[in-house]
Structures are given as structure tokens and as C-alpha cells.
Simulated assay, not measured.
Amino acid sequence: MTETISETKACTGCGVKLQTEHAEKLGYVPAQALDRSPIICQRCFRMKNYNESSGITLDHNDFIKLLSHIGYTKSLVVNIVDIFDFEGSLISGLPRFVGDNPIVLVVNKIDLLPKVTNYNRIVNWVRKEAKEFGLKVVEVVLCSAKQNMGFDRVLAALDEHRGGRDIYVVGATNVGKSTLINRLIRDYSDIEAELTTSQYPGTTLDLVKIPMDDGTFIIDTPGIVYPHRLTELVSKQDLVTLMPDKGVKPRVFQLNAQQTLFFGSFARFDFIQGERQSFTFYVSNALPAHRTKLENADHLYAEHKGVMLTPPTLEALELMPKLTKYPVRIPKGKMYDVSISGLGWVKVNSDSGADLAIHVPKGVKVAVRESMI
């Protein structure tokens, strides 16, 4: 019985093959649930109904094997990235995986940007950054799948560029990929089942083929888990605080050299040397900031991490990599951002240059880029 299930049926939520014997393994479904329609595995059922994380994901090699298949197809590739973690959510090596297939770059979560944002500037900025990354795209589309912003343009771009081909949807975890696909299903397919949408990584575990009305398919691929993103290192309780759920209110701090800002115990920003200047922080509104003198910063962190400097709690902090110092030099002459993958970014508002140090859990990606806003 189990072999027949494994060979012929897959979870309509995550795509993994179903089995009834091993509750601790992927694809488990109780035997009494097999007559349900649609059938979803127990992992997807618990995420969908209770928002629980199972901790079961595919490893990186399995992700790469699935993605490498795309280059042998004739498809339109929709690459979804998170505007709030642009560098961290880009898929390393994607041009190599997709071959000659055209790429539409869908930039999700623009509802998190300040309301006064110039979207034309954002599109130009994304094009420039993508080109530097080696990603050749036929179109950049800004949207918010959650807030239904820009979705008509997403549909128009797909109609314009796919030419009757299948659509492969790729992206890192937590970029809103499943939410966007559920919107595509409503417009392109008459099936009722929706993919499992959760705030936790690893929601989709295999290729999920969704038939469209014209006989082609939308193919959802697993989200790649990148440990260089802070959002992959924190507990599920702290993830709610770290990931914004509404428009971010920029926080501006006028700092002198030798001053430090803590954002909970997640990150520390040192202004080491430079003229007095302002820095704008684009981070979750729920994340508290604490200012101190640089000379006091080490002692303050040692004494108050996980208590006054929270989140995360001391218990959760012990499960994360230790804070590591990354020196950052901001050159003169242009406006720059310092992005911290999974946390947000800091805009340096002066073109006079500055010497900084960013302290984040070891392995989290820190990058300097031309200012987005």
C-alpha cells in the first residue's frame, strides 16, 4: 500500500511523495486521511492549520539538483526576491541553472518600503544590482503579493514573455513565493488547492506542477535556505519581530564618531570614525534600538544581552552563532547603504565617508551598495 502511494501521489501543498509508515520522515500522511481531496502531508497540514514548523527540509544539494533541471527545459523563469533582503535573497548561480530561458525578476514586499518611495528609482536600482550580480532579466516587476500591489503588471509580464511555455517559479525561503503562486493559480488555473503558505522556511520540498488552463504548467520549486540570512538563524518566535509585516518607518540617528547602536541582541552598529552625520535604519518597527558610547559597548552587551538587549532572549541567543565584527569602510563621493541580510539596511546619509563596524551572528551577509532610496 505504501509503495503505491509513494509512486503515484504527492502532497498538493509541498510536492513531496506521500507515505504512511514513518511519521518522522517527509511525506507522512495518516492512512485515514488518504481519502481526503486534496491530500496534503501531515507537515503541511500542521503548518497550514496551526502555523507550526516541522524542522524537516531538503539539504542544499537536493535544491541544486532540482534547480539544475530548469536549464534543460523551454520555460519562462520567474525569480522572486525580497526587496527587504535583496542581496540575501538572490540565488547564487541562478544564471547557470536556467540556461537560455528568459527571466522575469519579481521584486516582492514593496509594501514594506516607506510610502514616499519613488518606484521608478527602485526599478532602475534593481536592474543595476541584478546586472552586477550577473543576472540578465527581460523585465523587473515590483509587487506586493500580500497587499495585491502591482499584481496586474506581474500577470502582464508573464503573458508577454512566456510564449506558451511553462513557468518555473524560483526564490529563496521567506520571499513570498508561495503567496505569489497562489495568486497565479487563481488567474491561470481552475484547481481549488492552494500551496502551503507559512512564515517558516522549507515550505515546498519538491517540484509542484500546477496545471494551467492552456495545458502548460506553473512549476513551484523549493525555496533555497541560505544560512547567511539572519532570518534563517533565529527562533520562530523572534522571526515575527525580525520580519516586518507592514511598512517600515525609517529611523534616523545623528551620530558622532565613537558611538554604537544595538538592535536587540541581533546586531550592533559602530560608527568608528568620520564627521558627525546621520544614518537612516530600515529595520522592523518592532525591533528596539539602544544607543551607547563605543567604549561601553562590549561591557553593555556582556551584561545585558538577551535581557535589556532583546530580542532574542538569552536562551534563544545561546543557540545562535556568536556576534562577529565586520569592518566596513564607506568611501567618499556617493550615498551608500550597508545591508545586513535578514535584518534590513542602513543608509549613510553623508557622502563624506565613514569607518564603521557591523557586529552580526557569524556568517550573516553584510554588503555595501549604492543607496536604494
Rank of each mutant, 00 (worst) to 15 (best):
S371T: 14
P227V: 05
L18H: 06
R183W: 05
M149Q: 07
A193L: 07
Q237F: 11
E303F: 03
S75D: 05
L314H: 04
D166H: 00
I185S: 10
H161M: 01
A193H: 15
L58F: 08
F253Q: 12
D62K: 12
L261K: 04
H228S: 10
E295V: 13
G27V: 02
A23E: 14
M1P: 15
P311E: 00
D159R: 11
L58H: 10
L233P: 02
I122W: 03
K65W: 02
A354Q: 06
P244N: 12
V348E: 10
A289N: 09
I103F: 01
L58I: 15
L242T: 12
G176R: 05
I91C: 02
H290K: 13
D206P: 00
E87Y: 03
G13C: 12
P331W: 03
Y282M: 13
A357H: 05
G88S: 09
P222F: 07
L314A: 05
V208K: 12
M243T: 13
H161S: 00
S352M: 10
Q259R: 10
Y72N: 04
L319P: 00
F97N: 03
I181S: 10
V107Y: 01
I64V: 14
L343K: 04
T292C: 15
T2I: 09
V154D: 11
I210L: 07
L76I: 14
Q277G: 05
L26E: 14
T260N: 11
N118G: 01
N124Q: 07
K136E: 06
T12E: 14
I272T: 14
L112I: 03
E132N: 13
A367S: 09
D111G: 04
C14Q: 08
Q273W: 07
I330G: 02
L309G: 02
V116Y: 15
I80G: 07
I103Q: 01
E52D: 12
S144P: 11
L26N: 13
N61Q: 15
A130S: 14
E87I: 00
H69Q: 13
V77N: 09
D337R: 10
Y301D: 00
T310K: 10
A316R: 08
A289Y: 15
I191S: 03
V104I: 15
L94C: 03
G333S: 07
Y336H: 09
L356N: 05
T12H: 13
I218T: 02
I181C: 06
P361D: 07
F262P: 08
N182L: 12
K249L: 08
A130I: 06
P250W: 07
Q254P: 04
L112K: 03
R127M: 13
